[in-house]
Design a protein around this nucleic acid. Structure first.
Lengths: 193, 193
DNA sequence: GAAAAAAAATAAGATAGTTTAAGAATTGAA
DNA sequence: TTCAATTCTTAAACTATCTTATTTTTTTTC
């Protein structure tokens, strides 16, 4: 199991001893996903948080009438889960699916809780993770509220150029909260200029 | 300085000794705000996080063309700041203004950092605060993307009935990302039924 | 490398939400 | 208590975005 990327990620914020690292390693499972595989489905239990070693995942919500809304993408070096349901032991609200073949490391809720107890500074690490996630989400909210679709699209291209290159127009539209047809027409306008 | 509410808030997640409580108390300042007073203005420094002892605050973003978007409200027992700018020492992106007269406790970034060092379990407390904030924001994002304005309005009334009673229609519209005129017409439709 | 499947483009008609503007109702400050 | 300011309502014209349907292009699979 390759955990280099993971510990590079964690050590950005706290420093772990070799013993602590190997303790964490003992709590992890790994999973290889093919394109389109699901690691989480709406309505099912959500006992894991995933660290992305490689590949690209997409979390999305299907509303009762089948409309697809992308909650987030996760590239290499990102953490992903349905946080609310993971933390509170609730059935998942969102689906998480591999957009590209993925290699992920899985940490269960029980293991995470044990880390908070056994390695107290892990609280600090996760606090920073949550701070960043909250700020990112808040910024997205401000932009969704204050900008028209075209500007949101340009913001997305600037902020996540790698992701923009790996996902379909449909998935970008679903992230921006517009229809693929409308995004297609936005692209077309831009070309015109 | 009345800190009962504050420690009730903190002790929901960690338990503090009397010594720790009085240490925290020594780091706090308090502030009384009249209606419409600002505790934060876009572009200015954002060195504090505020705990609301009483009253009601609103954080909002004014885009270049003057459109007002409400980022959050904060009632008694809530924490509020421009989190991204507070944590990273950046000029504020949002304004925070008293909707009703307020009594708030102020904690500086430097004091918060010192708490993370001196009372390590404070990391746990703040982690949980950030988890909740992130999940709340994510849920709001899903609803904004997947629901029409009328449903978002009903969701707001159900989730925050107290706030709905204390703020203007204009401010609710600004939170929902629609114009006051359109919210007024939604209200009118509902009355019709 | 060809057939099948999925994605993207295009276009016309429909709708949710905005803009502007004016009058009615509330609210706040003196 | 009154007056000025703000907020709320209403309505018509307008626009961004959606829906539906068809065609073209790209991708996947056998």
């Amino acid at each position: 199991m390759n955990t280099d990327q993971l510990f590079k990620n964690i050590n950005k914020h706290i420093s772990l001893s070799a013993v602590e690292e190997s303790h964490i390693r003992s709590l992890l499972a790994e999973k290889h996903l093919s394109r389109n595989d699901y690691i989480l489905k709406q309505g099912e239990a959500c006992p894991f948080i995933y660290f992305v070693n490689s590949g690209l995942l997409r979390a999305f919500f299907l509303n009762p009438s089948g409309k697809d809304n992308t909650v987030m993408f996760a590239l290499r070096d990102w953490w992903i889960t349905d946080m609310h349901c993971f933390l509170n032991g609730l059935p998942a609200m969102v689906n998480i699916q591999a957009v590209k073949p993925c290699h992920v490391l899985c940490l269960s809720k029980a293991s995470l809780d044990s880390l908070f107890e056994d390695i107290p500074k892990f609280n600090r690490f996760f606090r920073i993770l949550m701070q960043n996630a909250y700020c990112r989400e808040q910024l997205r909210m401000i932009q969704n509220l204050s900008l028209p679709a075209k500007d949101r699209y340009e913001g997305f291209l600037t902020k996540y150029p790698q992701i923009a290159n790996m996902v379909t127009l449909k998935q970008i539209a679903s992230y921006l909260g517009i229809t693929p047809e409308f995004l297609s027409s936005i692209r077309n306008q831009k070309k015109g200029k």
